[in-house]
């Protein structure tokens, strides 16, 4: 009797959760549809200036045209490769720098004020210098993507290294573990969740770096599409680029979350 009652209330509890989830999904999709429907309507009825704000069906048609002539695919793949390389290399380089700082307490103390200054500086301002130094190529755009994320990654990951539970380190030391073993066995794995979460932040940062880099280089990519659209006053093209960026960064963010679930099991 008792177990039956428990089972029943548990089933109710599960049904409640399911109901809430369905409601949540419903409104998420509703907001999406309403937004685009309203945009379309406002554009068509001239509530907003269609020259400036365009509307979804116009953007969609432009996308089909650009897909047909093959130019969109090139722009998208160029930007995507630059961004992926930017955020992976930025995170990797930042983690390596954090490791060096962890290795030498003295070095980290010496470099501390420089890191603070570098972090508060707007990295995109370095864009012109990078482009002149490395040439107007993919290289300098990727360098922009790296520059924008590397300092903050260094600071965040180094802080995580420093905050590892000292008793975990003591366990390794009681077995006579050296500094390298301490890093490999404790400090790095304990900081893994932080590294993954900087990866999430860096997805966004690298997009900024790469798009600004493409503004400046103005050769190829979604950033180039935006700046070109702006110059010829084709805001449908600008908005098409923005929509594609939104979709791609959402996909990348989800990929990182999937990676997080795969890597962190405990």
């Amino acid at each position: 009797m008792k177990t039956k009652a428990v089972n029943e209330s548990h089933a109710n509890f599960l049904a409640q959760i399911k109901k809430e989830k369905r409601l949540m999904r419903f409104w998420q999709i509703m907001i999406f549809i309403l937004f685009f429907a309203l945009w379309e309507l406002a554009g068509r009825l001239n509530w907003i200036d269609p020259l400036l704000f365009s509307f979804p069906s116009k953007i969609w048609n432009l996308m089909l045209d650009k897909l047909a002539d093959g130019s969109l695919l090139i722009h998208v793949s160029v930007t995507l490769i630059e961004t992926i390389l930017g955020f992976i290399l930025g995170t990797l380089l930042g983690t390596i720098l954090a490791t060096i700082l962890w290795w030498s307490r003295l070095l980290s103390k010496i470099l501390d004020p420089y890191l603070v200054v570098l972090n508060s500086m707007p990295k995109v301002a370095l864009g012109p210098i990078i482009i002149v130094a490395l040439g107007p190529s993919y290289g300098s755009i990727i360098a922009m993507g790296i520059t924008i994320s590397v300092i903050i990654t260094t600071i965040v990951v180094y802080t995580a290294f420093r905050e590892v539970e000292p008793n975990y380190i003591k366990v390794v030391k009681t077995f006579g573990g050296n500094k390298q073993q301490t890093f490999k066995e404790v400090v790095l794995p304990a900081s893994f969740p932080t590294i993954i979460s900087t990866l999430k932040v860096n997805v966004g940062l690298s997009w900024v770096g790469v798009i600004v880099g493409e503004f400046l280089v103005s050769k190829q990519g979604l950033g180039y599409m935006i700046i070109y659209g702006f110059q010829v006053f084709n805001f449908t093209l600008v908005l098409l680029s923005l929509v594609i960026i939104a979709v791609l960064s959402a996909v990348m963010y989800n990929a990182v979350e999937w990676l997080e679930r795969k890597l962190i099991k405990h």
Binding site: E165, Y168, K170, V171, T174, V186, A190, F192, I264, H266
Partner: peptide, 13 residues
């Protein structure tokens, strides 16, 4: 020499 701490400090990962 083996050392046992106040808590287990097993590595959660």
């Amino acid at each position: 020499i083996g050392y046992m701490l106040q808590q287990d400090y097993l590595f959660p990962w």
